[in-house]
Design a protein around this nucleic acid. Structure first.
Lengths: 143, 143
DNA sequence: ATTAATGCAAACGGTTTGCACTACT
DNA sequence: AGTAGTGCAAACCGTTTGCATTAAT
C-alpha cells in the first residue's frame, strides 16, 4: 500500500549516505508484498525463493537499517521469534490462536482500548506494536 | 507459598509412575523460592549455583514433567525466551518495561478486564497466563 | 577512490535430542 | 528386575558477528 513509499526508500537510503543494492531492493520487494507481520526467518526464505543466493546475514542487516528508517518495526511473536511489522501500517496488536496457529491483527483503536486501563491505573504506557495476546480464536473455541 | 504443595510433588510424581530424584528435588527447591516468572535459562543457572553438576537437559525435561503436573506453565517473554510461571499462582499477565527491563505482574482480575472486550467482540478467549504487554512503566515514563 | 554492503563461515544462546548409563521403585 | 531418569555431547533453530571481498556512490 502507498506504492510511492517503497519507491523512495532508495532515495531515503542515499540521503543518509547509505546505498541501494540489489539485495536491498529484493527485500523491499518482498516487504511490499507483505502485509502485517512476518518472522525474520520467513523473510529470508521468501527472498531465497526469488534469489536463491540470498544470505541470512544480509537480510537481517538490511532489516536493521530499514528499522532505523522506520520502514519496519520488530516485536516478538508468540513462539519467540523476531517478528517484523511492515509500515506504514498504524500501530496494532496481535491475537495468536494457540490451537490453529493463526495470527489475527487488532487495529490501533481496539488495541488502545485494551490498554487504556493500564495507563489509567498504573501509568504504564503500553507499546501497541508489541502487544500480543495468546489464546483460542472463535473458530477453534467453537469447534 | 503453600509449602505443603511442594512437599507432595514427589507423591504426585509417584502416583503417575514417575520418580523423585535429587535433580528434580533441586529444581523444586529452586521453584519454591521463585515467585512469578523465570526463564528456563535462569532456572538452569540457579540450579547450577546449588549443584554445579546440573545439566540443562535435565532441567528442561523436568520442567516438561512439572508442566504436565500443572506445577509450572510456560509462556514467552518479551525477548522471546521461554518463561516459566510458578503455580499455584492464579492466572496473571505481565507488563514489561522496555526501558528499565523490569517486569510487573497484573492480577487475574485486572488481566481479565483487559481482555474481556476481545471475547465480546471477537469470541477470542485470551490465555491470561500468556498475556504480556510491553511498554514503559510509570517510573521510566516520568523520568 | 571511498567506504558501505555483501557473502561466507563460524559462533552465538537457549533449547532439544539420541543414546548408553545410572538409580529410583 | 524393570524402566524412568540422567549426563554427555552433539544438533537444532533463528540470529549475529568478524573479516576479507565486492560494488554503489
Amino acid at each position: 500500500m502507498i506504492a510511492a513509499t517503497w519507491a523512495d526508500v532508495a532515495e531515503r537510503l542515499r540521503a543518509r549516505g547509505l546505498r541501494s543494492t540489489p539485495q536491498r531492493r529484493l527485500l523491499l520487494d518482498v516487504l511490499a508484498r507483505t502485509s502485517g507481520h512476518v518472522t525474520g526467518a520467513a523473510l529470508v526464505e521468501r527472498c531465497r525463493e526469488l534469489d536463491p543466493a540470498t544470505t541470512p546475514s544480509t537480510v537481517y542487516r538490511t532489516l536493521d537499517v530499514l528499522e532505523e528508517l522506520g520502514i519496519v518495526r520488530h516485536a516478538h511473536g508468540a513462539d519467540g521469534r523476531e517478528e517484523y511489522h511492515v509500515l506504514p501500517e498504524s500501530e496494532h496488536g496481535h491475537l495468536h490462536c494457540s490451537r490453529c496457529g493463526v495470527s489475527w491483527e487488532i487495529g490501533a483503536a481496539e488495541a488502545r482500548a485494551l490498554v487504556a486501563g493500564l495507563q489509567a491505573s498504573r501509568g504504564f504506557v503500553a507499546d501497541l506494536s508489541h502487544l500480543s495476546v495468546g489464546g483460542v480464536c472463535a473458530g477453534c473455541a467453537s469447534a
